[in-house]
Amino acid sequence: MDKLNNIIEEVLLKEKRNKFTFLTGAGISADSGIPTYRGSDGIWVKGTKFHKPEEFGTYKYFTEHQEEVWQYTLFRKKMIESAKPNKSHKILADLEKILNDRFHLITQNIDNLHRRAGNENIYEIHGNYREVKCSKICNKIIPIPNNITGKDIKEELRKDEINALKCTECGNWLRPNILWFDEYYNEKTNKRFSSLKIAKNSGILFIVGTSGATNLPLEIARTTLKYGGYVIDLNIEDNHFTELLKNKKRALIVRERSSEILPIIKEQIEKNLKKTI
């Protein structure tokens, strides 16, 4: 871990492009009991009893099966709401307090666990389950209606829930404010440009629990490297970032669980911060 410590020390001494950015994915929530999508034990690989992501996780499928998609979405919502932030979430919340405005968190997760752990400076690039928006032309993002709660997998929508899930302006279905597999990143929902600006000013980008299977996370990593930042891949398996980082001088690959490596990173940051005072 000497190389990691040296990188942290170097970035803490920089006056520009000195942000500490953490890019997180489903792997960081696995210890909270939420299945990953693309890990070796994820629902992308195994599916569920009733659905696979490539079936329900598209805008096209939603336009044809709104009630079914909402039924499954509310099943996932119930699972997420019953989960609790784990050790890794709490360490990232601590690091935000330690680093203040030098800390940024970009997450692919829609589970709200980072926010519940105490993080505030969060960019949710895949959206979240706290909000909905019109599925057609209105596109206004609003909090999910109060009467819409999590459900069991076979529990159907009530009539009052169906009514609450219709846009008050145009009458079309509301949809979860999340990124589906057949959609593109934008700034309004996905903070595309904001996250790339953060990457440009990052002295270190830590990649935690994500395989980089979608294009914006990879673009964030490329941007950090392009502008002279370090990229540290903290995952238990090789992934799409592995090829990108291979033979790069300003890259480091660490094959450890986030619960094991994040405490070390926190300790190294605290130790090196004391040196700069």
Rank of each mutant, 00 (worst) to 15 (best):
E64Y: 06
I28W: 03
Q66A: 15
D160A: 04
Q108S: 05
N215K: 13
T224N: 07
K188S: 10
N235H: 05
A30P: 01
V132Y: 11
N190C: 13
N172C: 06
T24N: 11
E237F: 03
T21Y: 09
G209K: 06
T73F: 12
L205N: 03
S211Q: 02
R17Q: 12
K191F: 15
I91A: 01
L92F: 02
L165H: 04
E260A: 10
K52Q: 13
Q108W: 07
K188R: 13
L205W: 00
I141L: 05
K136G: 02
D160N: 10
I265N: 02
E54V: 05
S202G: 09
E124I: 10
F22E: 15
D233K: 11
K200T: 11
T214V: 11
K140M: 03
I142S: 13
I110D: 09
N6M: 15
G228A: 07
L23E: 15
C138L: 01
A83K: 09
K154M: 13
K188H: 11
I207T: 12
L95W: 00
E15G: 15
W44C: 03
H51A: 12
S259R: 08
L12Q: 14
L205K: 03
S202C: 08
N172V: 06
G42I: 11
I80E: 00
Y129E: 10
F22I: 00
K151A: 12
I236K: 14
Y184I: 14
I253N: 11
S82P: 03
G127E: 14
N128A: 12
L234W: 02
K188G: 02
N190E: 02
G209S: 09
K19P: 01
S202N: 09
I28V: 11
D94C: 11
L234G: 09
P217W: 04
I125D: 02
K275Q: 04
N18W: 05
I269C: 08
P263M: 05
G229W: 01
K275D: 03
D94P: 00
L196K: 11
T224K: 01
I236M: 12
N121C: 03
S195M: 02
I43F: 00
G39L: 03
K84V: 08
E55W: 08
L74Y: 06
I204K: 08
M79T: 03
R250I: 09
N128L: 00
K136M: 10
K200S: 06
G47Q: 05
K246E: 07
D2M: 01
N5A: 10
N119A: 01
R192T: 09
I8W: 03
S82C: 09
S29N: 10
N201A: 02
N239S: 13
R257N: 05
K246Y: 15
K248E: 12
G57S: 08
K77L: 15
P176W: 06
D31R: 01
E15F: 08
R250Q: 15
E131A: 12
H126M: 10
F62G: 03
H126F: 04
H114F: 14
T242H: 04
H126E: 11
Q66G: 13
T242V: 06
I277R: 02
P263F: 10
